[in-house]
Design a protein around this nucleic acid. Sequence first.
DNA 1: TATGAATGAGATTTCATTCAT
DNA 2: CATGAATGAAATCTCATTCAT
Lengths: 230, 230, 230, 230
Amino acid sequence: MQNVERPMGIAERKTREKEERRKLILEVAKRLILDRGVIAVSMQDIADAAELSKATLYLYFPSKEDILSEILEGSADAFVAYVEERLDPAAGGLSAIRTLWESYLGFYAESPDIFVCIGIKNYLDPYMPVDIAEGAEEPLRPERKIRRLIAKVLKRGVGDGTLEPSLDPDKIARITMMITAAIISNVASLPREARDAALIREDMRSTFELFLRGLAAPNAERSLLSLSPP
Amino acid sequence: MQNVERPMGIAERKTREKEERRKLILEVAKRLILDRGVIAVSMQDIADAAELSKATLYLYFPSKEDILSEILEGSADAFVAYVEERLDPAAGGLSAIRTLWESYLGFYAESPDIFVCIGIKNYLDPYMPVDIAEGAEEPLRPERKIRRLIAKVLKRGVGDGTLEPSLDPDKIARITMMITAAIISNVASLPREARDAALIREDMRSTFELFLRGLAAPNAERSLLSLSPP
Amino acid sequence: MQNVERPMGIAERKTREKEERRKLILEVAKRLILDRGVIAVSMQDIADAAELSKATLYLYFPSKEDILSEILEGSADAFVAYVEERLDPAAGGLSAIRTLWESYLGFYAESPDIFVCIGIKNYLDPYMPVDIAEGAEEPLRPERKIRRLIAKVLKRGVGDGTLEPSLDPDKIARITMMITAAIISNVASLPREARDAALIREDMRSTFELFLRGLAAPNAERSLLSLSPP
Amino acid sequence: MQNVERPMGIAERKTREKEERRKLILEVAKRLILDRGVIAVSMQDIADAAELSKATLYLYFPSKEDILSEILEGSADAFVAYVEERLDPAAGGLSAIRTLWESYLGFYAESPDIFVCIGIKNYLDPYMPVDIAEGAEEPLRPERKIRRLIAKVLKRGVGDGTLEPSLDPDKIARITMMITAAIISNVASLPREARDAALIREDMRSTFELFLRGLAAPNAERSLLSLSPP
DNA sequence: TATGAATGAGATTTCATTCAT
DNA sequence: CATGAATGAAATCTCATTCAT
């Protein structure tokens, strides 16, 4: 009688443990990639760092690519969540896009690794970093989530007259993604020691300001065109 | 009578043929990289495609990296030449930067592969894609040539009041290079069949327009802010 | 009842098997080198002979050089042990050096391959076969162990008057090492089928006798100047 | 009529030039081997140094091995000539063997390269450095010439009572050759910069003195047992 | 005769992935 | 469930040798 819940509990615990191992592997892989750069990380390295055997990795992930995919996906989701949390639904479009860039900078400041990781797959795996082919019926690639978010914000801005009216929100969203991914890609390809976080952030800020000016309607309030230094 | 110089011509022909083989190898390599992405191309692949033996490749190039380097260098030089030819020394800064972007688009339209190739080494060889360490006295890396050109144009614009006065030309030049290199990198990482040249050009145009608006002084002549569709 | 410790035994067995594989590889490599000469043996050859894949070799040894090193080191250590076991600490110097030569011959008789292998690295790795640079504090290269042993024995002999008094023990030790290593090198470079063990041993004996006469004090007991035929 | 001797002269000149080219190649190869060690010299290196094409080398020598062979042969012949010139046919055996060692040292002092070269083939090409298999009907390998010379001298010494009577001249000649070749081999395997000619000569002298004492009859005149320092 | 060009065969090493236990 | 062990396939590069001109 005392054992009634045990079988349940055991399975549960196993599931939980399994989930924890998955996370461990992903984290470890992320850290390694961050330290050494994408190409320089082998399955052996990940296994060693996770204190598991290589074979065990394959119990949790069907291939190396899947590990990278999942890291990417996780990062994208975290970013979307981060931004949405900060986005004021009532704010004007220009202000919203400012918030977007600021979130970018803030997110990067808080966990550069996640950001850097976005570039990874996109770098390693030569398929569309920006999904140009809109029609595709794939299981909603992570980048697209971010892009939708951006497009939404841009549409709002074009609608309320705070952004340049001639803009095509979807197109600009795509471009923005490309640029952003590109910056990150570039950063990711630097060896750890060459990455001066402060410098990078400052460059990103300048870039985003440039963008902001480019996006804003001609009569836009001047104060909204600069981003607070990080 | 016309053959008087033939004996001379033999050595000449040999030299020419040798030069042609070099070019053949470079072109073949470029095409392969274009088709499959940088990492996916091995010396064996290049040899097969050029219908030569692997050993022969090493007769023309001391290493794989040298092949990539040369492709890169050639492209960068060609681009700088292309731009300088179009740049009117008397034109205002804003106009000059417009010309720069237009050259970009034009150059890409004429030989997309060359452009795509700029991304290669930058990808393969993880050193600063944007040369942060300015002091270095290396043999003037190809990227730097381009960057100097951009900085020069920007300075002119800031000087003559056609560009936003708060801009730091050197910094913006660096950023611009980064963005550009990044766009190219991204494009380069697309598999051949996913690259719709027209679409990419159109996106680049939009990007550059965004940039142009971001760079221009507030009172800039509106007509200078758009780029002619390719 | 006898199986009580079995569970323990599993890990133990694995360790043992792994160790056996290592040994197998070393032996196979030694045999091949013996058969074909050092230069002619590739990792592929070793892999084939051990019925393993090339990649597997790298599981046991980080590089080809390490395999050779280990063979060499093992042989040198075995020899030093062999000699020291036979050396009577109380015996006179001349007698001691005789024992040394006899050990040489005996050791060679017991395992010609080991001896032959001493020549290997010395051949492959062109650093001082005789370590002229005495000061070096390296982890005591195997050859040096042997040389120290010889110098010690010689000093004793010069001290007790049984060896030619004008000898410089350290220098002679160096020379002796050189000659010995040289003989071995030479033998090692013979193809297997040309090596007549008996003949080689007989030659070594004659050589050592020559040496013995050369080293002995003029008044040395005549009976100590010949070595028993093997 | 004026052309009568021309055809003859031309052929002659051609033959002479051909012979000169051969010599050039051999000398160049010798120098390279001396500088870099045997293994490190490729046909390309030789061709470059001789300012010829690789293909041309094959017009003069059927293979790389043949080049080495010939260098060896030439050196051996030169050495035999050198010694024979110094050998007093009337001198006693012990004195003769002394002359032999002294010639060795002198020859080495005059042209270390030639000596070093003796070791080369013997090192590279794993066939008998000392031709144990006496019966062989080969075209009189160069080493054998030297060995015959030594045996002859030894026989004289045993005959006239100046050398240890129990010696077997042929065997000792073989051993001596082995030791000598061995010393040279060892020296040859040193990188150029590690070869201290003076030190090597001094070591050789000590070795030969040791030998001399070992070979001499017990009642040998003491003054004949030491070699003049080089 | 001389050679530039080409190459086959092979060397060492790496790595994602599989499989028996 | 976990893993130690094994491996196929591939990567870069070298070199003695051949051959058409």
